[in-house]
Design a protein around this nucleic acid. Structure first.
Lengths: 346, 346
DNA sequence: TATTTTGGTGTGTTCGAGCACATTTTTTGG
DNA sequence: CCAAAAAATGTGCTCGAACACACCAAAATA
């Protein structure tokens, strides 16, 4: 159990050459029954594990992994992902992999398609993408599939047999988690679900969260609550939200399904006498600030950094160390309040 | 940026031999200023990263890492740690490391010392230990230090310059997290902090949590709360706790500082009309069951599995890949309720 | 019987870093 | 100026797996 055996050791023990052992280990045939038996006997006794380091040294192929995600300068939501990818690049720079990041404009399907064309030009071994646009994603996945390029996704789930793996969160469940926390803060009253988003690209995301949130209250038969949905865009937040507040003076809680909770918190902070429970998503700086001031009660951590990191690292582990790629990696739904936030912000 | 450069490439570019490049890279001296300059010029232009795989291949030393922790058959609290170590063993079995687990009886200082002697016999390169007994730990750490054996710790923090690293949680902060959740569940009333433990070995653990818990309420000047501490042992839980309940009929919440919340929950479940908020530690099966039935409101996840895994993996990364070992790894204080529990139980 | 085809086996080289040692060049001192 | 010492540089081997290829036998074919 102590020693690490090598092919040479096995060869010596079985009284054959390392070439024969190698043929047995890889079922390459051309081995006599006598030799096969002798080698198998040895293999049954010892616990042979091929040295991964030596195995890889011979492999001079440089694997190329392209990551495709929205430009974080346009939407800072994606900044943590870039950091996660950067971590992976640093970690794996000493190995024969090249990890490249490509940005597209999250407001433009055209940009998404164009960036994919650029990636295909580079003929990578795998791509990791944030498939914001459903229809377009299916189109380009078909192309990748034909070219034999492996496709992994993160953040958004798209059903396709050509997608090898998905890293993300169970959004429905995360809506339920938010609901359970809201239920804890409030004994009863009116709750608003607010979707803040520029385009419809996150529609599925937000809907799943809403479903989970509503389902929690439905299931519990909590008739003391009434739930309203409100859709906002950046351009109309202030006006539309103030109207909503006026029309619903008894509003007790708000669940914001995107990372823009700070925008609602900002508006509420100007109305001193308003006391509304806020639950939102993502540990971006502005949100954490409002967590500290007490205006935001809970944040749900989507851990995009780790999503992106895992998306890349499973690919690297696959190419370099022949590890299996899991179909789905669902990250835990971390509950964050002011007391434990500091351990999650990297 | 694309190609991975090798020492041979650098040698060719600088017009010298790979031996000279090697001497420059390792400051081994015996290099003329002319050669040094030529090589440095090349190094400034390209981005050389030595191939970790090749570097390690030459290193035939088999590193031995011994892990020392309480026998999980005596205290199942340690079962997740064993799983974490098992994960590490599986992951690293193809590398030149041997990871061994040694158990001691958590009730016996003698057993702790004896197991340490056994480990010293094996002359490992590093040990990872759960330092349950403070005084004894300092003793044996001295021995390890003299033998040049690296010592890392997890679960319990012990201050010593001879300890290279600690993986665990900020217990004070975790007490505060528990308090913040309790404060959310209860508007006011009496709260009990219950320590359930057979021996005093976890005294520091429990005290720190209590400190954090009390500090939260002190800081907020929440005079609507009164906090009592109760110490229990397995043998007297039932009797002592029922007496306590009778004497404190207005008890509204209980914070259990160990993983034994299920024991309190069991007792409370027999008293139907009692409605007390329970917050405890650790996602052991019985605790999660009570989370599901609603008797336990929150659990704080100490993530022992990951603690143990990280304790081992940082050592392996250090020996094999020359990674730095961080002084302290503080895992996040995960807040668990019935809705997100399933993502954390491994 | 001579020659090709197989089946079975062992040998040798490669990967990149690291280091020991051999070789060449330069410097020093008598 | 030459020998010896010192400095600088290059060569060659090693690690373990993987695979190409060389080799030798026995069997199949001409």
């Amino acid at each position: 159990m102590d020693k690490k055996y090598t092919i040479k050791d096995i060869a010596k023990m079985a009284g054959v050459s390392k070439g024969t052992v190698d043929r047995v280990l890889h079922n390459r045939g051309k081995v006599s029954p006598t030799a096969l038996e002798k080698i198998n006997e040895v293999l049954n006794v010892i616990d042979y594990e091929p040295n991964l380091i030596a195995r890889n040294l011979k492999n001079t192929k440089v694997y190329r992994i392209c990551v495709l995600l929205p430009n974080p300068e346009i939407d800072p939501y994606w900044l943590p992902c870039v950091n996660g990818i950067q971590d992976a690049i640093t970690e794996f720079k000493a190995y024969s992999v090249i990890i490249e990041t490509h940005y597209f404009n999250p407001e433009s399907k055209k940009s998404f398609l164009k960036t994919n064309e650029e990636i295909i030009e580079k003929s990578p071994d795998a791509v990791l993408l944030a498939p914001l646009f459903h229809k377009e994603t299916l189109e380009i996945i078909k192309q990748y599939d034909e070219l034999g390029i492996m496709v992994n996704t993160f953040n958004n789930q798209v059903e396709s047999s050509s997608i090898k793996s998905f890293v993300g969160q169970d959004l429905y469940k995360s809506g339920r988690v938010a609901a359970s926390l809201m239920n804890l803060i409030l004994p009863k009253g009116q709750i608003a679900i607010i979707h803040i988003d520029e385009s419809l690209k996150n529609a599925v995301h937000m809907q799943e969260k809403e479903k989970g949130f509503r389902n929690y209250f439905d299931e519990k038969n909590l008739s003391d609550f009434s739930i309203t949905t409100l859709k906002l865009k950046h351009s109309n937040i202030e006006s539309k939200f103030s109207v909503f507040l006026e029309e619903n003076p008894d509003l007790k809680g708000i669940f914001i399904t995107t990372s823009k909770a700070y925008q609602i918190a900002t508006l509420l902070s100007s109305l001193q006498n308003k006391k509304v429970a806020l639950i939102g998503y993502d540990l971006i700086e502005k949100n954490v600030q409002f967590l500290n001031t007490g205006l935001v009660h809970f944040l749900i951590h989507q851990n995009q950094k780790r999503q992106a990191y895992l998306g890349v690292s499973t690919l690297v582990d696959h190419f370099l160390f022949r590890k299996e790629i899991p179909d789905t990696i669902l990250l835990p739904i971390d509950i964050i309040n002011v007391e434990n936030a500091s351990f999650y912000v990297s």
